[in-house]
Design a protein around this nucleic acid. Structure first.
Lengths: 178, 178
DNA sequence: TAGTGATTTCTGTTTAAACAGAACTTTCAG
DNA sequence: CTGAAAGTTCTGTTTAAACAGAAATCACTA
């Protein structure tokens, strides 16, 4: 697969954005390429297209599979692995959010809870500081619980809610001022 | 200011999390420390507490001010700058989201729009690929528009909506299945 | 079961970011 | 106007991640 200028711009930008959000540039570029590709690609095709080392592509594909964003397929009469990305963008977003919650938010909650627990028998930490940690715990818990609730909804329901935007508040008569 | 074990755990974890989300470790640590601190701190106090070079602290504080997360204050009869972090967590979150939208989402929208525009007179890019870029544009626009709408709501309204969780859908009779 | 194609793992190199320390600039007090 | 304190900028070093290429493993076919 050869990159046209448009594809190249897309892939490079995605790599750059990935980097800003803590995702390896190669990983993000490969993901972008697979998202664009109408058909599954082999590791070698990817390496050639993006001018990356074969080994680098292998590792990155493994990571993308770990995220659940890329799956492996096979073509009849072809021993090679072919890779394709989820193309449903809503699915893609939910997958990423779910995974980041698992990897980053949940451990943070654990850490905060432990801090609050230990704060009980701790004499040296300023009470105001303890209070701030507790506030942070409550805050992260609120966000996390909200997400867990939203996750139970149908995709179509979520889309409807999102399209309603701020009207949601009006309909529910939650708006105080304008 | 001396770090107690609890504070140290909190600050180190925050630094680690920052790194995973594309924020410099020192920047995240300093932000965590200022969030915890009941009173504003000078750059030197921060450097001593976190064992960072004075220059590093200076740069990081600049960055945090750029994000709008930290402000500069002065004490009477003291020439030194004192720094304090926003402590309202809701404010903090909105500030971060707003800033990331400005720095990352908006440029991405620009890139996607340009791709779609250029796709018009482009013969070499597969129509399916063009379609996928357009779908991505629509998707990011939907998310962005939703955010812009929610941003107009009062903080209290947002909190109420969030606390309602999935009940929102039920009340609006949007749920199809369970 | 030998041999080839495909993939992964290992190891060393490259690269970019993070950081420290020094030099420099600014600000204010006396 | 001078000197000291505070803050910033510059430059070189360190460190960690990203990456390439080689070696090793695995998987299948003939």
């Amino acid at each position: 697969m050869r990159l046209t200028p448009i594809m190249e711009r897309y892939v490079l930008h995605w790599g750059e954005m990935g980097a800003r959000w803590g995702v390896n540039r190669s990983v993000a570029q490969i993901h972008a390429l697979l998202y664009l590709s109408p058909k599954p690609l082999t590791a070698e095709e990817i390496a050639d297209t993006l001018a990356l080392a074969r080994s680098n592509v292998s590792t990155s594909l493994r990571e993308l599979q770990g995220w659940g964003l890329v799956t492996l397929t096979h073509a009849l009469g072809d021993r090679r692995d072919h890779f394709e990305a989820k193309t449903d963008l809503w699915e893609m977003l939910l997958t990423i959010v779910e995974e980041r919650k698992r990897r980053e938010v949940d451990p943070t909650l654990t850490m905060l809870r432990q801090c609050v627990l230990d704060a009980g028998e701790d004499k040296e930490t300023d009470p105001e500081i303890k209070a701030r940690i507790e506030r942070m715990l409550t805050f992260v818990e609120t966000l996390s619980n909200w997400y867990v609730q939203m996750r139970t909804l149908q995709k179509s329901t979520l889309v409807s809610l999102m399209k309603m935007g701020s009207k949601v508040a009006k309909v529910l008569k939650l708006t105080r001022a304008a």
